[in-house]
């Protein structure tokens, strides 16, 4: 298992442990693709009825709602809570494509898990 996938698995666990987050996301059904641009990996996280799941394999039959891209180190840093997503996002090192509300929701998830 790569360091990024390991981090994402822990991130998903942290999401599911947070009750307020589950409540907030109960109607937020989204498919998130996390794709490092310095490694040949693709990871899919599905949010459904407030529960997050790291999907097996590197492919999904459905297109993503959100696409999260950046260097592996940056992705590991934000999904592990070592840094906020905002800092690399504002410097262009983290790129997120999708609806603005969903992009903001990702940041709020990080805020709820790790605080300010």
């Amino acid at each position: 298992m790569s360091a990024l996938r390991d981090t994402l698995a822990q991130f998903v666990e942290a999401c599911n442990r947070n009750q307020r987050l589950q409540q907030m996301n109960h109607d937020w059904d989204r498919l998130i693709l996390v794709q490092p641009d310095d490694a040949d990996e693709r990871h899919w996280i599905r949010y459904h009825q407030g529960v997050a799941a790291l999907m097996p394999g590197e492919d999904s039959p459905d297109p993503a709602d959100l696409l999260v891209e950046g260097a592996s180190g940056v992705l590991v840093s934000i999904f592990s809570g070592a840094s906020t997503p905002t800092e690399p996002y504002m410097s262009g090192d983290l790129r997120v494509r999708g609806a603005q509300d969903d992009v903001m929701r990702l940041d709020i998830i990080a805020l709820l898990i790790w605080g300010e």
Binding site: A14, N18, Q19, R20, G81, A82, S83, L112, W114, G115
Partner: peptide, 10 residues
């Protein structure tokens, strides 16, 4: 010093 998972309110 470091960020750890929290249930803090926003």
């Amino acid at each position: 010093p470091a960020r750890a998972p929290t249930g803090s309110d926003v």
